[in-house]
Write a protein that binds this DNA or RNA. Sequence first.
DNA 1: CGCTTGATATTAGGTTACCTAACTATTAGG
DNA 2: CCTAATAGTTAGGTAACCTAATATCAAGCG
Lengths: 147, 147
Amino acid sequence: MKSQNAPALQELAQDFREALRHSVYLVRRLDADGELSTAQLSTLKMLLDDGVRVGEIAKNLGVRVPSATEQIIKLERAGLARREADPDDSRAVRVVLTPEGRDAIESANRRRNAVMAGILESLTDDDRRALAAALPVIEKINSTIQN
Amino acid sequence: MKSQNAPALQELAQDFREALRHSVYLVRRLDADGELSTAQLSTLKMLLDDGVRVGEIAKNLGVRVPSATEQIIKLERAGLARREADPDDSRAVRVVLTPEGRDAIESANRRRNAVMAGILESLTDDDRRALAAALPVIEKINSTIQN
DNA sequence: CGCTTGATATTAGGTTACCTAACTATTAGG
DNA sequence: CCTAATAGTTAGGTAACCTAATATCAAGCG
């Protein structure tokens, strides 16, 4: 079994990487609607559990702390997030969503989900089932970024 | 059935977009090994069918022509690709891989596939099966970028 | 208590990869 | 033949990442 799995693993790795690499461009296109950039939406979504520290945002996104800071400053200037002092640790900063930020997530998602739904609509039921079954797996793989 | 599918479609679109957005960061990490950037590997791979025009590369990647030109110039300077005059249309340019370019694809893929295979190894057989089943679907979705 | 070590975040400066607009060269159609 | 469309490049700008350096604060230890 091992000797049968080993080559399949390599091939799966190759094909999956290829698919993800292509998806990078798809995401860019989907997000190029002038609402929120991919990076800003990703950063905003981190704030849905209230009061997140900058370092955590960076870790969860898989970027360095200065990159997270930069995004947060942009979100703050746009009125979508706010930085507050951490009561427990005055080195730290707690980033919170503003109501406008919450709305912005909603709005960007609505529009982009509609576009994606339009694409998914052209698939077969089997295709959609296969996709749905793989999503938890993909998220499991994505979560390895945090280490 | 339609009325049952409609909400599921929205939810699937949302979840899939979320997964892909996260994957953007995973791909960035995987490709941050100093070999070839994501953009350069993607551009190089376009050249595997020999003699591709700049406009086609751009279209297939989902970027504008000047962005493709920029990548091609970098690849050319690195000795990985070459631009040749199109015999049929002297406005056009045919981009071809050099042997070094072919090697570079090989080498970048080998290393990164190994990392990805390591991640996939920690999954269950069912997970890998689900992932494999979804890959053609994802590529089908990705291919909508060209329009 | 005071000092050093480590952690948290920001600032500064640089790179990559995209974009639009403007330009050059060539083809094709009326 | 001349105008309109097409292919590509150049110029200039922006977004999002990075590393290195800095300022602040926390925590442990002599």
